[in-house]
Design a protein around this nucleic acid. Structure first.
Lengths: 165, 165
DNA sequence: TGTGTTTGTTAGTCTCATCTAACATTAACA
DNA sequence: TGTTAATGTTAGATGAGACTAACAAACACA
């Protein structure tokens, strides 16, 4: 058992990748297993390959790496699940994804599809401090009525939200 | 001459990396040459190696790649400068860096060092749409007095800026 | 239960970006 | 101007992560 502690504790400047010493690519495999497992109970190699747009041989190879790191339960020809540690990592990534996506769509007014792509690209690279500030900012935006504004595509800028008093 | 158009035009969902088909690592070399050249007029292999914490042999190798891509002027044993295309790329990256850093420090109240690290890690991964929205958001924050708030470390959350009316 | 299809694995190759070790060039200066 | 130190390059190896081609296992169903 190497690398990933039983409970993930990210310090201020650290990203998820730095904490786990896991490349962005490998993080994506963990996230993908999590997403597929959430939908279907467990992930198959074919599903993972299709989702990540890679060949099945690449998936097998990645799963061996992740298994040796204690992040996935892998036995040849069997379905794949996350270990407890893999689950914690996936949830940490998911928290980051959701905060980014919420911020992009809810506050910056970016269309959901672009927001999804940006959040996916960025979730691996946020420090814990930045993550927490975004969480706090979203909370403040939602509770503070004085703060309501909205992106206006006609102007190409932000302006006071007309729905708000 | 391949890959990079004479004038960079990034479309909505595209990142700088996708546009130029240049890896994050290679983007970092371009940015580093730009930074060193801004300070000293031109970059040397040793400077680049020290800045990026890699060996000089790695720098030589990267410079050959970037030279073949038309982004740096490289001749063996000579100082290194950016081509016009390399300069455009570096400036595009720098715009993203500054917007992120401004947002993190000026609005989210993150300390400059953490903000620097986050901006460095994230600058390669922003879509053009997200970049533009952040620019707009910062402008709005700066001009709209109703929008002033600030991170309060005691509370661990945002609150109305006491300096503001 | 045998046969074909789907799914998964293995073996080997490729590219990228790094490294080390050895060598070459340039610069400094006595 | 010759020697030494600093700087830069080459050649070859490594590891990550992708690929293809060939093979193996599991499944589906007549």
């Amino acid at each position: 058992m190497t690398g990933v502690p039983a409970t993930i504790t990210i310090t201020a400047m650290e990203t998820v990748g730095e904490l786990t010493d896991l490349s962005e690519k490998m993080q994506m495999y963990v996230k993908t297993v999590h997403d597929i497992a959430a939908e279907k109970g467990a992930a198959r190699v074919t599903d993972i390959a299709r989702t990540l747009d890679v060949k099945k041989a690449s998936v097998t190879s990645a799963l061996k790496t992740l298994s040796s790191r204690g992040l996935v339960n892998y036995t040849p020809y069997d379905v794949v699940t996350l270990t407890e540690q893999g689950l914690q990592l996936a949830e940490e990534l998911d928290r980051r994804y959701r905060v980014l996506h919420d911020f992009f769509v809810g506050i910056l007014g970016i269309d959901p599809h672009t927001a999804d792509m940006d959040a996916c690209n960025l979730e691996h690279h946020l420090s814990e401090t930045l993550h927490q500030r975004l969480v706090g900012f979203i909370e403040y935006y939602q509770t503070c009525t004085a703060l309501k504004f909205r992106w206006d595509p006609n102007i190409g800028g932000f302006c006071a939200d007309p729905d708000d008093a």
